[in-house]
Computed example of a mutant assay.
Amino acid sequence: MKILFCSPIVPSKELGMSKVLIELIEELQELGWLCKLLSPTDICPDILSYTGIKYQQIYSQSLKNYLHEYASEYDVIDYDHVYLPYSRDEFINSTLFVARSVLLVHHYETLTIPIPNNLKGKIANLIKRASRKAQVQNWIRDATLTIREADLVNVSNDDDKTELIRRGIPADKISVIPYGISQSRRLLFDNISSLSPVKPTVAFIGTFDPRKGSNDFPKIVQYISEVIPNVKFRLMGGRYKTEKEVLGHFHQRLRNKIEVISNFDSEELPKLLATCSVGIFPSYLEGFGFGVLEMLAASIPVIAYDVPGPPMMLPPEYLVPRGDIKGMSDKVINLLHNQEKLQVARLWAKQQSQKFSWQHIAQITSETYLRCLESKRTVNKTTRE
């Protein structure tokens, strides 16, 4: 069986959607699937010269043209939920078309993402507000059409399914399949001791931007530091920010508590997490939240905002309402103050992470796609007869 994965960004294991596709493909190939990952530059060589709405339009048109010519060579086409806003009748009917959401754009209409709280950020927001609003409206318009025309919709959390059902998408057309950690990376995480580190260190994995909670970090650090003076913070993955830019968000007296690691290979992450005690994830919107899973795999219990994504991995006692800075800080303090409770939480974190393996998720994906493909072809055969 052959499956084509269409990435709207140039594939890289360091970037969201393509990371998902690359790691999933590796496991599906072990199951016997013949997989191809299509980069946007494969179908439009100059695509990277475009941005925003123009990129969306050019990529969508290029993908449509490519699938008109080559879709018949595959059993399944797996593509982003924004970029194929065309009638299903335009494409070969025997191939299964799957719209995949790594970050459901419809949430941008109902969940407010904070704007940067510095002067430069506020000015930029004023200047770009209209274009950003237009971009979101275009995303949602095209995503709605893409999803309605797809044979199957693949989302990574239950909140996405609820939102799509609310918008009229049939429940039986939506498959919730989370993400995982590969066996090879799992071995690296398994080398980390579940015993609590001697020095209290709070971890975060993710880009340092308002969607990920950058506005909330200064107060979180302040609240925790006031109660636990010797606490340290390790912020990892602020790839689009320099250390100076990240530290600039914090009061001068707090900066010596913060270590910023903005560039690292994925294989280095387990070692960076080995000396961390508790994790925080104040993101306002996620598709899944890889950072949460990676911290859990390193025996790090995580406190997160109760938004789409993290609840797939975390129980209610590890969640706080979005923007509840004090609530998040208090839960971290409670764990750091109670070594017995922290030890139990660290053992639980490791066990919880075991539920999310790419090997298992690839098996679910394979079974789901094959079942839908068989059903589709049976209907087509009956219709012809």
Rank of each mutant, 00 (worst) to 15 (best):
M236P: 03
E317Q: 15
G180I: 00
M295Q: 11
D216A: 09
T112D: 14
I147G: 01
R148M: 09
P116I: 04
G323H: 10
I22R: 02
Q252F: 13
G213S: 10
E73R: 11
C35R: 03
Q222H: 13
Q29A: 04
K36V: 09
M236I: 15
S266D: 14
E245L: 10
T365E: 05
V246P: 05
K355D: 15
I280S: 05
V344L: 15
D330F: 08
S87K: 13
L67R: 01
T95D: 03
K376T: 07
K161T: 02
E73F: 00
E149L: 01
D160H: 12
Q339I: 11
T382Y: 05
F233E: 01
I303G: 00
Y74T: 11
A171Y: 01
M328V: 05
S266N: 14
Y86H: 08
N191L: 14
S131E: 15
V221I: 13
G206M: 01
G279N: 04
I58P: 00
L38P: 07
Y240V: 12
T207G: 13
E340K: 13
L31M: 05
P311Y: 11
P8R: 10
I174H: 03
L188P: 03
K271M: 07
P308V: 05
V153F: 11
I174T: 04
K326M: 12
V102M: 07
K341P: 00
D324Q: 06
R167D: 09
G323E: 07
V278L: 10
P218A: 11
I43L: 12
V10L: 06
H81D: 14
L269S: 04
I115T: 13
T275V: 12
